[in-house]
């Protein structure tokens, strides 16, 4: 076998692999997209029997679905905000101070993610009943923030720790107070990492279903919890329409982030260039 033919073979294999990967990733999405416009779609037909916008109409006419969209767009930004207020100071403390139990608390943050979520939520529900938090905005917010604590602490902590101390010292030497140093040097330099954490928290909150369902249903339905009743009560086409709607904010956010990733600042947070 010559070197040239070996090179061609290697390229062909790479191409096959790329196509397989594309099918694996895009295939289900394409199916979903087609499904959302399908009238009926029976085996073994490769394409639906007919096309319709009927399922979109169903979704948009259903008032409860609109409310779910509103709820989701209410909880996700609020979760990011509250999570940032609670976690960023903790992240800074983990990054900059040595205190007893530091490692224990840092590892302990994973506890919420270490157990099966449903088990955690059931015990949480018992507590929520006691404190009258069931079916309340605060209750749902607590559940959502709980799911973002790990991102919002670990990633910014790493970002804060990566800010060289000499840069902070240089600012103090220049005459800045400790607070000024934080807002002028430490925070802007850690910002890419914090933005990454914020995006991940937003998506985590947007996607949270189990805990929201347990605490909020039926008064507060978000888009993912609404999915459950859709899958149970409607034909699959409605679920397909709804998952496309559910994906829009995430995709939009990622596209916006992508613009900045290429722009550079977020790339530093993601460590890619």
């Amino acid at each position: 076998m010559t070197a040239v033919s070996r090179k061609v073979l290697a390229r062909a294999l790479a191409a096959v692999f790329a196509v397989a990967l594309a099918v694996f990733i895009i295939g289900p999405l394409a199916w979903l997209a087609v499904r959302a416009f399908a009238d009926s779609w029976t085996y073994p037909n490769l394409l639906p029997d007919g096309w319709t916008l009927h399922w979109w109409e169903v979704v948009f006419r259903d008032r409860s679905l609109g409310i779910a969209v509103q709820n989701s767009l209410f909880f996700a930004p609020l979760t990011v905000l509250v999570s940032a207020l609670v976690c960023l100071p903790a992240a800074y403390a983990f990054a900059r101070f040595e205190f007893p139990g530091r490692r224990f608390f840092l590892i302990g943050l994973f506890a919420a993610n270490a157990f099966p979520k449903m088990g955690l939520f059931v015990s949480l529900a018992a507590l929520f009943y006691a404190f009258n938090l069931m079916n309340s905005i605060l209750g749902i917010l607590i559940v959502h923030v709980l799911g973002t604590v790990v991102f919002m602490t670990w990633i910014p902590a790493a970002a804060f720790a990566a800010v060289p101390r000499s840069l902070e010292e240089a600012a103090r030497d220049a005459g800045a107070s400790k607070l000024r140093v934080f807002f002028s040097v430490t925070l802007p330099m850690a910002l890419p990492g914090i933005l990454v954490a914020a995006i991940m928290s937003f998506l985590a909150s947007f996607d949270e279903a189990q805990g929201t369902y347990l605490v909020g249903a039926p008064d507060y339905m978000t888009m993912p919890t609404q999915m459950y009743s859709l899958v149970l009560n409607y034909p699959t086409q409605v679920a397909a329409v709804f998952s496309i709607l559910l994906a829009i904010p995430s995709v939009a956010l990622l596209l916006a982030a992508h613009k900045h990733i290429v722009g550079g600042q977020l790339a530093e947070g993601f460590q890619i260039k």
């Binding site: 000499s166 240089a170 030497d173 005459g175 002028s184 802007p188």
Partner: peptide, 29 residues
């Protein structure tokens, strides 16, 4: 504290703030 002392320091690794331009770095104090 260091911010109140009448001394100014040039750090070994220069400690320039990467998110500011050269002029902004110099203007900061």
């Amino acid at each position: 504290g260091p911010e109140q002392r009448p001394s100014a320091m040039v750090f070994q690794n220069y400690a320039l703030w990467p998110h500011m331009t050269v002029a902004k770095n110099v203007a900061f104090p």
